[in-house]
Measured scan of single mutants.
Amino acid sequence: DETGKELVLVLYDYQEKSPREVTIKKGDILTLLNSTNKDWWKIEVNDRQGFVPAAYLKKLD
């Protein structure tokens, strides 16, 4: 059920640097789980959840 889920576009590649982070690729469109922290957003990638720098993402309307 995708209702109410926010999507984000990945602006730059990011390689995870800790187990709490996930790797993302430029151009991916992913589900945003939590954006309350202005610097690190929690997203879902391939059934994995983790954090990436918010500056690497853009919210889609």
Rank of each mutant, 00 (worst) to 15 (best):
Q49L: 07
T3L: 14
T23M: 03
R20S: 14
L30R: 10
A55H: 14
L32Y: 01
V22W: 04
R20K: 11
L7Q: 12
S18D: 11
L33W: 05
K59M: 10
Q49H: 09
E16V: 07
V45H: 13
G27H: 06
L60V: 13
I29T: 07
P53Y: 03
R48A: 06
D39Y: 15
V45K: 14
E6D: 12
T23R: 04
L7P: 04
L57E: 01
K5N: 10
K17L: 08
Y14I: 01
L11P: 00
T23Q: 04
A54H: 04
P19D: 13
S35G: 11
N46V: 10
Y56I: 13
D39V: 15
N37Y: 08
Y12D: 11
W40I: 03
T23I: 03
T23W: 03
G50F: 07
E6K: 13
L30E: 05
A54C: 07
L11R: 05
G4Y: 15
Y14T: 00
E2M: 15
Q49T: 12
N34T: 07
L60E: 04
Y56N: 11
S35R: 08
W40Y: 08
L57F: 02
E16I: 10
D61A: 13
D39R: 12
E2W: 11
V10I: 03
L33Y: 04
N34A: 08
E21W: 03
D47V: 06
E16T: 07
W41N: 01
V45I: 12
F51C: 09
A54F: 02
T23L: 02
D13C: 04
Q15I: 15
A55Y: 10
F51S: 03
K58C: 11
D39P: 02
V52S: 02
D61N: 15
L60D: 03
S18A: 11
T36A: 13
D13R: 02
K5Q: 10
K25E: 07
S35L: 04
W41D: 00
D47Y: 08
D1F: 14
L57T: 02
K26G: 06
T36C: 12
Q15E: 15
T31D: 05
E6G: 13
A54G: 05
L30Y: 10
Y14F: 06
L60G: 04
N46E: 13
R48L: 06
E44I: 11
D1W: 14
V45M: 09
T3E: 12
G4V: 15
D61S: 14
T31G: 07
K59W: 06
G27T: 02
N46F: 10
N46H: 13
D13G: 06
D1L: 13
E21I: 02
I43M: 01
D39L: 13
I43H: 00
L57H: 00
E6W: 10
R20Y: 15
W41R: 00
V10Y: 01
Y12M: 12
Y14K: 01
D47N: 14
N37F: 08
P53W: 03
V22H: 02
T23G: 05
K17R: 15
E2P: 14
N46A: 12
D39S: 11
V8D: 00
T3V: 11
K59R: 13
V45T: 13
E6Y: 13
R20Q: 13
S18L: 08
T3G: 13
K25A: 09
K42V: 13
Q49G: 05
T31V: 15
K26Q: 10
N34V: 08
T23K: 04
T23N: 05
P19C: 07
E16M: 12
N34G: 06
I43S: 00
L30I: 10
D1M: 15
G27I: 01
F51K: 02
T36N: 12
L11E: 04
K59N: 05
S18E: 09
Q15D: 12
V45E: 04
G50K: 02
R20L: 14
V22E: 02
P19L: 09
K58F: 12
I24G: 00
D1V: 15
L60Y: 08
N46I: 09
S18Y: 06
Q15C: 10
N34Q: 10
L32W: 01
K26C: 07
L7T: 08
V22L: 10
I24F: 02
V10Q: 01
L33S: 03
K38I: 10
N46T: 08
E2A: 13
P53I: 02
S18Q: 09
R20I: 14
L32I: 05
